[in-house]
Amino acid sequence: MSEYNTTDFTNPSTFILLGIPGLEAAHVWISIPFCTVYIIAILGNFTILFIVKMQQSLHEPMFYFLCMLAVTDLVMHTSSLPKMLSIFWFNTREIDFSACLTQMYFIHCFSVIESGIFVAMAFDRYVAICHPLRHSTILTNSFVAKIGLAVVLRGSIVILPFPFLARQWPYCRTNVIPQLYCTHIAVVKIACADTHVSSYYGLFVLFCVMDLDAIFIAVSYIQILRAIFSLPTRDACLKTLGTCISHLCVILAFYIPGLFLSLMYRFAQNVPLHFHVLIVNVYLLLPPMLNPIIYGVRTKQIRDRLLCLFTHKGTSSFLLVLWLSD
């Protein structure tokens, strides 16, 4: 790390991303699971988008929100993973200052957008289970589009101060970021100025946006569970609960690593730096990979369509082989 330390500049034109400090020798091996996660996320989310587009019966609010989630996951992965892999494979650790701020904006913006989509999906499940007769009249296509637009605008506007605040700070001690990608906390930490404004605004986003989303989701599911457990038969309870399992799983995959990371930053100061970096990357990379897998396995309509596609392709290939053999 010392080879990258600099003290002869006031503001750098580039930052240095260290990768995973202490594990540089294993970067090539670490790249294998990272690349695998990227490939699975790309294939899985594009498959979800393709199935929903092609299957007319899936053109309903729950699957529209799922498509929004897939697009969000694709953007989050694409804004971070290619640079990570270039660090692992080619040791290209430099990143332009503006590119670093752009990457920071996209990562945080789409994290907030993803959280907002989970709120929208919780609202959809709440209306579908607690007010089933009004579901089609409340969640019309135009209303779903307005929710999607509101979620995107909220994420875009709320995160906009991050790069503007980071740009105004002087960076006169070092330009080394001990991470695989640019985050707001990592960039602000190396500034040689009083960055309390950035820190306080980061806490505002965490508590007044992300935490409020989590509270809204929790309240929605309390109402959903009350409605489910008031159903007359056990089979009805299980069937209705099954429609929420996928959503609950992806919510837990998104919020639990974030909660663990937040607690670790505050109470586990003696944890090795490379462990911090790995946990940060798990928080960023794992949900976009798990989301299409969870929905593909747990959602009957998507599962049936996938089986139909593979069966049709398998049958077509078999008939083609028979035709060629003749």
Rank of each mutant, 00 (worst) to 15 (best):
R266M: 12
L263S: 10
Y283H: 05
V197W: 02
S230I: 01
R93C: 04
S198T: 12
H247Q: 14
I185G: 03
Q103D: 05
P287T: 05
V75D: 02
K313H: 09
H184F: 15
T311F: 07
L259S: 12
L286F: 14
C249Q: 10
L160C: 13
T174Q: 05
I177R: 00
Y181G: 03
F118E: 00
P232T: 08
N45G: 03
I117Y: 02
L320D: 11
G258E: 02
F97Q: 04
V151P: 00
I293S: 04
I215E: 05
A26N: 11
F254K: 04
G242S: 14
I228S: 02
F65V: 08
R234C: 11
I302S: 03
M54H: 14
F318P: 00
L286I: 15
C182R: 01
R93Y: 05
L322T: 14
Q56I: 08
G258M: 05
R298S: 13
D235M: 10
S230P: 03
L101V: 06
R167V: 01
L263Q: 09
S86Q: 11
I113F: 11
A128C: 08
C35G: 15
M68V: 10
Y38H: 08
I228R: 04
C192T: 13
F46D: 00
P33T: 07
F9N: 07
L160W: 09
F88H: 00
S79K: 01
P257H: 03
I42P: 00
I185F: 10
L261Y: 07
F123Y: 14
S80N: 10
I20Q: 00
D304M: 10
K300A: 10
I147H: 01
I224K: 02
V119L: 11
T137G: 02
C182Q: 01
L81N: 01
V144Y: 04
L101Q: 05
L165R: 02
A186W: 01
C208Y: 14
R305H: 05
G296T: 04
A191L: 01
R93Q: 13
M210S: 10
H59I: 07
A186V: 02
V282C: 03
T311H: 07
Y171V: 09
A25C: 09
A193I: 07
N291Q: 09
D213K: 00
F143I: 08
I157V: 15
L74D: 03
A25G: 15
S317K: 09
Q179R: 06
G148E: 01
T243D: 08
S57I: 06
F63H: 11
Y38I: 07
L320N: 12
L263A: 11
N291I: 12
L278K: 06
V280W: 00
F204K: 04
L259E: 13
F34L: 12
I159V: 15
L307A: 08
T7E: 10
Y265A: 08
Q269R: 14
P257L: 04
S31V: 05
M210T: 10
F50Y: 15
V28S: 13
L85D: 08
A191K: 03
F90Q: 14
S57H: 14
F106E: 04
D96G: 15
V71M: 06
I177N: 00
S57M: 07
A128S: 14
V152N: 06
F110V: 01
S246Y: 02
L206N: 13
D235N: 14
S199T: 12
F267S: 10
L248H: 04
L259N: 13
I294Y: 03
C192V: 05
R266A: 09
C308I: 06
V75H: 03
L324C: 11
I39T: 14
L252Y: 09
K83D: 06
V151L: 06
